[in-house]
Design a binder for these strands. Sequence first.
DNA 1: CCATCTTTGTGCACGCGTTCACAAAGACAT
DNA 2: ATGTCTTTGTGAACGCGTGCACAAAGATGG
Lengths: 241, 241
Amino acid sequence: MATGRNHRPATRSRGIPEATVARLPLYLRALTALSERSVPTVSSEELAAAAGVNSAKLRKDFSYLGSYGTRGVGYDVEYLVYQISRELGLTQDWPVVIVGIGNLGAALANYGGFASRGFRVAALIDADPAMAGKPVAGIAVQHTDELERIISDNGVSIGVIATPAGAAQQVCERLVAAGVTSILNFAPTVLSVPDGVDVRKVDLSIELQILAFHEQRKAGEEAEASARKGPDGDMPAVMPA
Amino acid sequence: MATGRNHRPATRSRGIPEATVARLPLYLRALTALSERSVPTVSSEELAAAAGVNSAKLRKDFSYLGSYGTRGVGYDVEYLVYQISRELGLTQDWPVVIVGIGNLGAALANYGGFASRGFRVAALIDADPAMAGKPVAGIAVQHTDELERIISDNGVSIGVIATPAGAAQQVCERLVAAGVTSILNFAPTVLSVPDGVDVRKVDLSIELQILAFHEQRKAGEEAEASARKGPDGDMPAVMPA
DNA sequence: CCATCTTTGTGCACGCGTTCACAAAGACAT
DNA sequence: ATGTCTTTGTGAACGCGTGCACAAAGATGG
């Protein structure tokens, strides 16, 4: 996960559970692979294995979408691809702007996974005037001054922030003011946004820190296996006054 | 995660809840900012606001670490920074290898957030012989043939996979065989690993798809509202089918 | 030393998500 | 048509995470 969560309280009324929504893209990817291999049908067991989840969970997830399976047979791959795509809103084209064309922004612009799934990079935006006009991934970078016009002209509702942390909140506010209502944030900052705007964040540093925690715990268990002494001591290296 | 999760079944008896662990880096970042501004103490309310969480949740999170606060005052910033760092295992140095030095791998290598938090890029590895020797972020790229030796020589236990999807599983297996026990996967694939190995994945495409789902739902609600009220709303440039 | 005020630490209840286990549904063979 | 076999769809139980609300702890002032 990348990451953390930051959306509305819960899925209300008629909605699909948030946890299920987060897994739909995973199923879709596995199904697309099957589709390319011309596999006609797949059982919940097989598909669950391909997606790396429990088969009961997968069936329950699909049950929120409707009864698309056939008992004794499984699920029709093509049909399911279509249903999930439609549910996720991928049957339409989503123009996306990327703000902050540093190393990460350039990597995102070049990332093939966007175009293949209904997303289209409508514009690359950077605050550095020296970047303006330079082509990245075949698209000319535009200056931040153009941000509002670009959003408006292209009907952009999804923005990606790949700026330094210091600029993120300001960029966010300009995006929202210009009409963006969904933001994918790569900057290591907490963004504050008005109600109705969704923010998802991807934080590389946090992911590594979580891994380090588990890694340390594994090492600690190993050490405990050899020596039966608690690692509970307070290192007074940095003590408050 | 922002994405998906893939660790061991549950939190162990004496352990800190997984959800809490995932928030500790967030608190740590907020605390570090306070520390740099020489703020001596902070209340749960203030810190929670800075980290974007509920204050009760924050206090409960800290209660798993111990009683580090002072009632009527709050938490000592420096002391808390140290305690969380220690808990996360950031008081030691973690050598990390990045495999796959494309756009994304290069962006990761240049990402400053690693070095500042106890992580050190020990090596950059790529399968392309033409990349070998080329410096990226001040480090010479090494060929995949060297992978096992690099891991072993540097005692690397954390690996980052930024290869194309097709190569990810194989790279993963080589990393694990060489001794890596924690993997951060950026490739859009489900990795299968033996027990004892932690995998976290960051999937840009999935994050965007989740945003698209919510975006579509918002558009649907708007359409529903304007259908009931009247043709008042702004013209939706992209109308869902 | 006592009263008051602030803020922590946590017991408790609630809701979401996961998993089990099984009845119902349909395919398929005879 | 009937029986068997496979696989779905889901009711129900359980566990984790969240947030409320408050008592306990300690600071502060008189």
